[in-house]
Design a protein around this nucleic acid. Sequence first.
DNA 1: TTGTATGCGTTATCAA
DNA 2: TTGATAACGCATACAA
Lengths: 376, 376
Amino acid sequence: MLSTATASRIEAVEAYSGHACYDSRMKNAEKLNETPASKPTINDIARLAGVSKKTVSRVINRSPLLNEDTRERVEAVIRETGYVPNPQARALALGRNFLIGLIHDNPNAQMILNMQQGILEALHGTEFELVVRPVDRGSATMLSDVRGFLERQRLFGVVILPPISENDQLAELCDEIGCRYVRMGSAVLDDADHMVASNDRDAVVEAIRYLISQGHSRIGLIAGPHGFRSARERREGFEIALAEAGIKLPRSLVADGHYTFESGIAATDSLLDLSPRPTAIFACNDEMAAGVLFAARERGLRVPEDLSIIGFDDTPIASRVWPPLTTVRWPIIAMGRSAALKLISGSIAHADEVTEPSTFFSTLIRRGSVVPPAKA
Amino acid sequence: MLSTATASRIEAVEAYSGHACYDSRMKNAEKLNETPASKPTINDIARLAGVSKKTVSRVINRSPLLNEDTRERVEAVIRETGYVPNPQARALALGRNFLIGLIHDNPNAQMILNMQQGILEALHGTEFELVVRPVDRGSATMLSDVRGFLERQRLFGVVILPPISENDQLAELCDEIGCRYVRMGSAVLDDADHMVASNDRDAVVEAIRYLISQGHSRIGLIAGPHGFRSARERREGFEIALAEAGIKLPRSLVADGHYTFESGIAATDSLLDLSPRPTAIFACNDEMAAGVLFAARERGLRVPEDLSIIGFDDTPIASRVWPPLTTVRWPIIAMGRSAALKLISGSIAHADEVTEPSTFFSTLIRRGSVVPPAKA
DNA sequence: TTGTATGCGTTATCAA
DNA sequence: TTGATAACGCATACAA
């Protein structure tokens, strides 16, 4: 919507109008005694500034070859009118939308939402918007679905969340289509431009060392689902820590889980049936750790006196159960922000020297679910 | 990408080409022995079908005034070529994007994500995509921020989540801009075309009746934040149920909360300091109910023997704590789906007779956190 | 350094 | 019922 001052300036320069359309709309609006429904276009700015469309376009896109005076004059008009380039027109002309996609197949609501938050923080104040796209990892048409999505929407770039981020074909697809991408993961799967990773293995090593330092040696593991890189990394961290302490890990102390609460309960049941029982259990995520706690309670076991528990993720559940769970926190929001910045840096102002980190570090959050084991 | 058969048909009708562009690209691709990078456009379809662009456009947009033969011929070509209209071009020409926005300021991750899931289910298989837009209710520029967003992106429509959905100015803004909207809420705030509501008050009445039927009469309430409609509705349900049972509600049995875990703990502390203590507490959401449980444990109280608890929302936390919480479940996903369908029905096929419901009903989920009170 | 002419792929107008 | 032509608003090639 143009201010009155601006509108009269348009009248003054009316001679040069390329399209008659804008002016006729103005007249129409005046007839109806309404404010004009249409916003100023690049044509209006060009006329008001007394330059060509192309010059305005150069200002918008920060072209280096541009006279300072011209630039300032055009920028002044843009400020006065509140002109904003039409994203739809830009998308058509550029063959690329100003949209960032979030591709995920993750069941963990808190993680997805934190990731969204991080991405949105990075996008805030830019011209980019976030489009959410869940996919079905199991589906045979997953790749062609994503291809259709990317080709049709012509996204500027996508952030891919684990575990689907581990799918190399998906990354290749993005490359082939010419869509930028950044993969999130619990280990480095791609080069620094296309990857933001946590270091799950080291974090778990630290967690298990802590259990051992508390005197635990009969430690159960509830592993994550097969095929998940994070599950592999966390399990390896577990094994490394035990090995360096010279603790043997009998097969029976490893139970399979699926990152779900229910699978945590089931796995715990099998572990607690052992004799002697483990004095501590490390679950590869908090959902399963909450299941451990739940299953222990069902048996009348005291936590942490009879059983210590460590989880992974530091989702809200970890701090809301009783006792609150010791767990590993990884900086999801910061990682989301970094991923988005990797995509759009270069297309935003003040981004000259931004080098986004590619690897993030996790920290052990000590709460009440770990104490030294009871005397045998 | 065109099939070989299709490509040769293009050659056959080449005479009519409007733009030379497409053909030159084809030749270029052949020279380089690559598949053509560009997808077929409406021009290609028009040539292949031997009709004008406008006719193809009519087929795409299901224009009623169209010869059946013509329609079928064009549709056949579309199927053969796998042609999909370019959303960017449509957006520019129509002045409207094929995007559905989700506007929210809600701190509850699970709710937002469930809502997203419901919306995405409705959007699946359509040409619409979901754009996420969190807003800051407290910000002075909230309305102008949203205005800028809507005007710039020219969304097809938006779904507005509570509590920001209770802001009437926001709805008026959508109207003014000409952006369709559907508001979600815990009570009916708008007409059926613009509203999808749960009935929180009745659900709470049922929950409190259940407590009373179990023998409770000294029941504490942890209210939601002032200014939230859901907080008001739930509180009113609480008061109605007590009144109809002839139970007086002393002011001291009502504690203020903010829908957060921590506020639930604080409110519980004040309630449990009373003498005599309440034998049951209804918290206006599960987060606070989890806080009740936590605070009770800190005091060494047994739940449910010493204190019964009911929450609201049936978020995952409710079923993961010990004991699992009796709570009220409202059909978030179904409501999200319904909201999205309200927006896009009319623009999708097979939507002739779809009348989306506007009010959804909640159910009391009975778990282990409620038992009759101990004998006084 | 700046401007002209044209393309991007679709829909709308209005005449046939 | 269909089609020629002009928008839609911006970007690019090529001149100037």
